[in-house]
Amino acid sequence: MRIEKLLTAMMEYDHGDVPRIQHFVKVYEFARMIGLMEGLDSKTQFTLESAAVVHDIGIHISEQKYGSSSGKYQELEGPAEAKKLLDGLEWPVDVTERVCYLVGHHHTYHDMDGMDYQILVEADFLVNLFEDKVSLDGCRNAYHKIFRTESGKRLYRTMYPTA
């Protein structure tokens, strides 16, 4: 499986929605970097990268159904959308199951079971802190509460040196 195939399919899924496409590409790249820096095995790395690409796939349907892109709605609606996309690309079943789990939990910041989960959340935070123009205090709070990997912490401190 080639991750480029999934990136292209997700770009087509979000057709015309430049901010969301830019968002998942950035999250994907940070997740990829952190995973490689942390030395993940190849299967976990592939699962992480796949999850990073589709992590926000539930946004459009959440906005349609609930009028909101809230994290709780993304977690509710995203897994089924991710499964459809991944099944259509003939992604490995075990990877698809884990990706759907991660999509369904990527706004839940406790009981993170696995490096793929932890890194996905850290990568999403690295991007969201900037995109959402989070205050310095908010950034510091996120750093201390969310970041656990040495690589994620290092990237955070490089981007936000006042941690």
Rank of each mutant, 00 (worst) to 15 (best):
K5H: 01
L6H: 11
L7S: 07
A9M: 05
M11W: 10
E12A: 11
H15R: 15
V18L: 12
P19W: 06
R20P: 07
R20W: 03
I21N: 12
Q22Y: 13
K26F: 00
Y28M: 04
F30D: 02
F30E: 02
A31H: 03
R32I: 03
G35L: 00
L36I: 06
E38W: 06
E38N: 10
G39M: 02
L40I: 03
D41E: 05
D41C: 08
S42K: 06
S42L: 06
S42Q: 10
K43G: 07
T44M: 04
T44P: 08
E49A: 09
S50I: 02
S50W: 06
A51F: 10
V53Q: 10
V54M: 10
H55W: 05
H55M: 05
H55T: 02
I57E: 12
I57M: 08
G58S: 04
G58A: 05
I59A: 03
I59F: 02
H60L: 10
H60T: 12
S62D: 02
Y66K: 15
G67A: 04
G67N: 05
S69M: 05
Q74N: 06
Q74W: 01
E75Y: 08
E75H: 12
L76H: 09
E77S: 02
P79D: 01
A80I: 09
A80R: 15
L85Q: 15
L85T: 15
L86W: 14
G88L: 06
G88D: 02
L89R: 15
P92S: 13
P92V: 11
P92K: 12
V93K: 13
V93G: 12
V93C: 11
T96G: 03
V99T: 01
Y101L: 04
Y101T: 03
L102I: 02
L102C: 02
V103W: 02
H105S: 14
Y109E: 11
H110W: 06
H110R: 08
G114C: 01
M115R: 10
M115L: 09
D116Q: 00
D116L: 00
I119G: 01
E122T: 02
D124S: 05
F125P: 05
N128P: 04
F130T: 09
E131H: 12
V134S: 12
V134M: 13
V134P: 14
